[in-house]
């Protein structure tokens, strides 16, 4: 797992990813264990990733799982069932709630955005 700063940098420096998300303006919640992070996205760029401090801070949808599960997802070659967020959802390794329309409309963008925390050097 990368630092928040490196994760943002990985996303915003990926021109193709930003192009794919260029219609997207949203805040969504990403849960790692008992911590939630709010991703603020404008035209596909991540403006900020901030830890959720009060419950009224909320995203349009929330995708969440345990830290160990995300760490497996972010391995250079993830094991089966951890290699893609829909594989993880199918196995109930992670969960998703809220208004899923923007998530599904931009599904590959969100998959790639989350996977971009993958450490290429493990």
């Amino acid at each position: 797992m990368l630092s928040i700063e490196n994760w943002i940098n990985n996303i915003n420096s990926n021109k193709r990813l930003i192009e794919n998300g260029r219609w997207l303006n949203i805040t969504f919640t990403f849960g790692i264990g008992d911590k939630d992070y709010l991703f603020e996205i404008l035209s596909g760029n991540v403006l900020s990733i901030n830890e959720r401090e009060i419950l009224t801070q909320s995203g349009t949808f929330k995708i969440y799982g345990q830290k160990d599960s995300w760490n497996k997802h972010w391995l250079k070659v993830p094991p089966r069932d951890y290699h893609d967020i829909f594989a993880m959802l199918a196995k109930k390794i992670i969960y998703i709630d809220g208004n899923l329309t923007p998530f599904i409309q931009n599904l590959q963008y969100f998959k790639d955005l989350i996977a971009s925390n993958r450490d290429k050097h493990d």
């Binding site: 070659v77 993830p78 290699h83 893609d84 967020i85 829909f86 594989a87 599904l107 590959q108 998959k111």
Partner: peptide, 11 residues
């Protein structure tokens, strides 16, 4: 394509 990309191996 986004749905079925989950069914392709990373290798």
């Amino acid at each position: 394509a986004a749905f079925v990309s989950s069914q392709i191996a990373p290798q």
